[in-house]
Simulated scan of single mutants.
Amino acid sequence: MNNRNDDQKHPLVVIHNITTLTTKQIETYCKKYDKNIRCFRKKNRNNHQYIHVLFSSIITATNFLNDRPHFIENCRINTSLVSEPLYGSKFVCVQIDKYASITEDNLYEYTSKNFGCVLNCVLYKSRNYAFIEFSQLNDAHRALASSNQKLNGYLIQYCPRNNSSKILPLLPLTRLIHIGNFLNKDQEKLQFYFSNLKNFTIHKNCYGQTYILGLFDINDSIKLLFKRPFCLNGRVLNISIDNDDKLTECDNYLLVRNVPYRLNDYNLLEYFSQYGRILNCFRYGQTNAYRIQYRDKISLNKVLEFNRIHVIKSVQVQIEREQN
């Protein structure tokens, strides 16, 4: 009971989104509402900075909160009473695609423009969601009733925010695809071969070989994986789900040894396809070994049971099941 009375006498306000602001700047701004405030800059266990502002009365604190949103040096700050629960009918949870290029200010501006006055907007990028506090209940209801909202080309979804700490993660709307056996000269034709590619970055592996990480809508990525293998300029592109997605494909890999450089991707793809559908076929760096991925274990077992020595264009190669 005493704690509650203390909150009424000396209300404590927490201010977030203050990394570019000094304590002095915030103190000067808040003193427009209460000359007797005290400010304390703090960090939580995740090294996130915030400021506690101790007001001298509930009246001055209420006046400060009623004037939200606040901007200090063109920086929007999130403010609330420490004693206030961060849930209720005016609070909305926004679920965001994990690869979306969306900032807290982007989301604040979009929501304010389309639904009404936003008091607070806190983005948890690593968790793929944000919390928004509306000034008016009707604005929150309009946001919740909306559908197919897009920000910077990515879908966002407004959901009710209750007192539960459990947030259901939004299913990824995009998927990161690894495209290997790729040359820089292929970049011009990339959009032609993969018309649904949203964005991509170019990388090099430990062998110095170039590969790309491409972003696809989840439905397009599924179609892409089913269409394998992909051949480009005499090579078979190595296409798989990137490891960052924590999604695993079948591991039906065949290791082919003693493959000279006069045999190329097409030669091996054509020969080993007689045993079943091949998804990927590529050389291990600068070695004499190839890695072939079959679509199913039946095909892999079929080629292994046939013979461990195969002849391709008068060249003997050895095969074995790749051990994980």
Rank of each mutant, 00 (worst) to 15 (best):
L119S: 00
V118F: 01
G153C: 06
A130H: 08
V118G: 04
R142I: 04
R127N: 15
I132Q: 05
C117Q: 10
I177T: 01
L171H: 07
N152A: 06
A143F: 01
P160W: 12
R161K: 15
K113E: 13
F131L: 15
S112C: 03
C159G: 00
Q149H: 06
N114K: 10
K150W: 06
I132D: 04
L173A: 05
Q157N: 12
V122A: 06
I167F: 14
N162Q: 11
Y129I: 06
L171Y: 07
Y154P: 03
P172V: 01
Q157G: 02
S165N: 13
L151Q: 09
H141D: 13
I177R: 01
C117W: 02
Y124S: 13
D139P: 01
S126R: 13
A140K: 04
L176I: 06
N152I: 05
C117E: 08
A143I: 04
V122I: 13
L137V: 12
Q157R: 09
Y158E: 02
F134S: 09
A145F: 08
K150T: 12
A130W: 07
S135F: 10
E133D: 10
I156Q: 03
K166G: 00
K125D: 11
N148Q: 13
C117P: 00
Q149R: 11
Y154K: 08
S126I: 11
K150Y: 14
N128I: 01
L171C: 04
R161N: 10
Y110K: 07
L171V: 07
F134M: 11
S146Q: 05
R127Q: 15
Q136K: 13
N128V: 02
L176M: 12
E109L: 07
N114D: 05
A145N: 15
L119R: 08
E109Y: 00
T174H: 12
Y158T: 03
C121Q: 06
L144Y: 04
I156W: 01
L155P: 03
K150E: 12
Q136D: 15
L155M: 12
F115P: 00
Y110G: 00
S146C: 08
K125S: 15
P160L: 14
F134T: 09
L123S: 04
T111M: 06
K113G: 03
Y124M: 14
